[in-house]
Each structure stands twice: as structure tokens, then as C-alpha cells.
Amino acid sequence: MSAGVAGVVLTRGIGPALPAIVYLVVFLVLPLGFLFSFAFLSVERGEVQAGSFSFLHFRETLSDPLFWRVAWRSFWVGVVATLLCLLLGYPVAYLYSELRSPLARQLLLVAVVAPLLTSAIVRTYAWLVILGGRYGLINSMLIDLGLITRPLRILNTDYAVIIGMTQVHLPFMILPLIAALAGRDRSLEDASLALGASRVRTFWRVTLPLSIPGIAAGSAIVFALSYTNFIVPQLLGGGNYATLALQVYEYIIVILDWTEGAVRATLLLVSCFFFVFLITWAGNRAMRWTEARP
């Protein structure tokens, strides 16, 4: 066994990579082709109609005002969750980079990584308990404190979905930020402080610009995850709540309208990649801008 592996492993050719490439072509590229083609073809009585290729389904979906309302909500919920993750994640990553004790660093990483290893449902379920109706943690606390008399409605609103998205995706923001901040060159900061700049000014002018690659990477991941997440809106948004990703799930699994599901999945994927590209591009621009700045 081991001799065979070594013989293959040390070859300098393309051979050992072929199984993985073939696997991805057959089970990812080809299936994606089927997914996209479903959006262009018509299905009647469970049979795909040959020669029915058209943009008809796209035209219908794109001219539906309801579609745009839902798409807009998916977008801004994703943006707000990304910004909140950045606001909450950056201080944690910065704290990590300033910690000297290895034990404290380990503990912080456990707090960040452990939630990643529990399933999305477990993490979302916790928010059902915290935000949920009369017996939820927040409402029973506020009532006990005498701040409110009737329970607030948080569950089944945009707020609940945004809170859930932010918490579920926070580790994905913190890890790239840690990678960017923990390995940074501190001599520039020391120079800035030695030249009399305040810490706050040093942070804004030196530390923050140095961490732009981490900010861009984290934001791209968190936006993509939030934009395509249908579990959080399903569980925390309530019965009538709709996002683009949730609609894709409903069309394919509940309504069984695969054509409309394929149209929306295609639009979701294409727009998601476009926004991720935009964030990466903005990160590169910001990088060059700070380098060129006097």
C-alpha cells in the first residue's frame, strides 16, 4: 500500500490530481450545467421539452416586482450582517493579536472555533430560545426588570434574522482578521507612536490600513454566507418571511417547481459572485489607495 502511494506521490506529473479533477467535473461542473439549463427549458408533465430553450422564465421572474422586493431584502440583510460582524469581529481579532499569554489566546480561539463545529441548526435554535415569545430570555428578563409589561415582538422580524445571521457567521469574520492582524509588522506602529501620534490616530492611520486584506476576505465570506443562508430566515423569520435563498428552497422542495427554483438559484449564484467580486475589488482598491497616500 505505502509503496504504491509513494510511487504515485513523488511523480511530478498531473496524474495524481486527475481523480479529483474528474470527480469535480462529473459531480459539480456537469450538475451545475443541468441546474442552469433547467432555468432555460420548459418542463411539461415531468418531461423536459426538447427545443424549448428561451429566456422566458428569466423575463417573467425579473419583471415580477415581488421578486425585486425579496432580492433587495436578501441584499440588505446580508450587508447589515456583514457590517455587524465586522464591528463585533474586529475588536476580538485585535484583542487576540495583543494577547501575550498562550493560554488566553487558546481560550479565545476555542470560543471562536467551537461554534463553527456545531451545526447551523443548533446555533440558530439557541436564538429561538433567547428571542422567542413570552418565555424567551430577552422578554422574561425585560419583564422581570419592569422595563416592559408586554413581551416585545423580536422573533419573526428582520431584527431576529439579522441577529441570527451575525452570530452564526461571526467566526468566519474573526478568523481572516486574526490571520491579518496577528502576523502584522509592528515596527510601523512603533514608529508612529515614537513620532508622537496618539494610539487612536496610529490605529486609524497604520493598523487599520494594514488589515484591509483581512477585512475584505472576511466581508466577502460573511456576505456570501448570509446572502445564501436560508436556515436562519426560515427558523427566525417566521412563516411569511422570504429571502431569495429561502425561495429557492421552497420552490424546489415544497412547491416542486424546479424551473422557477433553477431560475432563482441561478440569479442568486450569479449575483452572489458579483457582490463577492465587488468586495474583493474594493479591498484591492482601498489597499492601493492607502499605499499611495502621503
Binding site: 490530481a17 459539480l28 450538475p31 443541468f34 456570501a224 427554483g261 438559484a265
Partner: peptide, 21 residues
Amino acid sequence: AFVVAPQMMPGMVIGIAILFF
């Protein structure tokens, strides 16, 4: 890049694509 790229693919899209396929 081709082998690593699919990590940007949402799980839902992979699931649906294989179901259709």
C-alpha cells in the same frame, strides 16, 4: 484554482445541482 474554487459555492447550489443531475 479549479480544485479549490468550489469552496465559494453555497451548499444549497451544490445540493440542487446534484438533485437535478
